[in-house]
């Protein structure tokens, strides 16, 4: 049985088929929530934003342009919402004159357990520590660099699509990613020196 493409499903949603929307929801919820969690470093906010993305997709179903890839559209909405949320938080932190209220301290404890074998407590601690260093390095990037890295590295979005999502040319995306990786290389060096690889 052939799997329906996002495009076919979305065209059916346009015609009022809510079951097709549920298929799209099930197909894209995990990557989308994962993406937004990494973008805003706050699981509950990420889920609220993801919910908002799906609602906006549903609301705008009649305006969907079949020439744009569905995931490009989805991630464009998600990225705009995430960048807004990050900007609000940064503005708020400036007004407060303090550090951005990211969830640095809590995030480590919120990491989900993954059933990939059974790591010992010590292994899990090392792994969580490594994840924390990576997360902090990506969080420290300017928001659009962060989006580009996460889309490229974790969502498997190619740079042409990243360009459409961030409204940038191909060469601008490459330059954005290059600067992000340069920063990450420096920030992740403790992992190399600490032999935590």
């Amino acid at each position: 049985m052939a799997i329906d493409s996002d495009l076919e499903l979305m065209l059916r949603v346009c015609r009022g088929d809510t079951e097709s929307f549920e298929v799209l929801l099930r197909r894209h919820r995990s990557p989308l929530v994962g993406y937004l969690c990494r973008m805003v470093s706050d699981r509950s906010l990420a889920e609220d934003l993801a919910q908002e993305v799906f609602l906006r997709v549903y609301q705008a179903r009649k305006r969907y342009q079949p020439d744009a890839r569905f995931t490009t559209w989805l991630y464009r909405i998600a990225t705009n919402l995430a960048l807004n949320a990050i900007r609000d938080r940064q503005q708020d932190s400036k007004l407060n004159g303090g550090a951005e209220r990211t969830s640095d301290g809590e995030a480590g404890s919120r990491l989900t357990e993954v059933a990939d074998g059974r790591p010992t407590a010590e292994q899990e601690l090392i792994r969580s520590d490594r994840e924390r260093i990576i997360r902090e390095a990506i969080e420290a990037l300017p928001a659009r660099q962060r989006a580009a890295v996460i889309l490229h590295k974790y969502q498997g979005v190619d740079y042409a699509q990243i360009g459409k999502i961030l409204a940038l040319s191909d060469s601008a995306v490459k330059s954005l990613l290059f600067r992000a990786y340069e920063s990450l290389r420096t920030r992740l060096e403790p992992l190399l020196k600490g032999g935590q690889l």
Binding site: R29, S30, P31, V33, G34, C37, R38, R43, A46, E47, A50, Q51, R110, L111, T112, V114, R127, R130, E131, I134, R135, I138, V149, K153, Y154, Y181, L184, R185, L188, L191, L197
Partner: peptide
């Protein structure tokens, strides 16, 4: 750098999502 980034595991949506 690209390899190191692999270690960051994704979060999953909550069951009520």
């Amino acid at each position: 750098v690209d390899e190191v980034l692999d270690a960051w595991r994704p979060e999953e949506p909550s069951p009520s999502f």
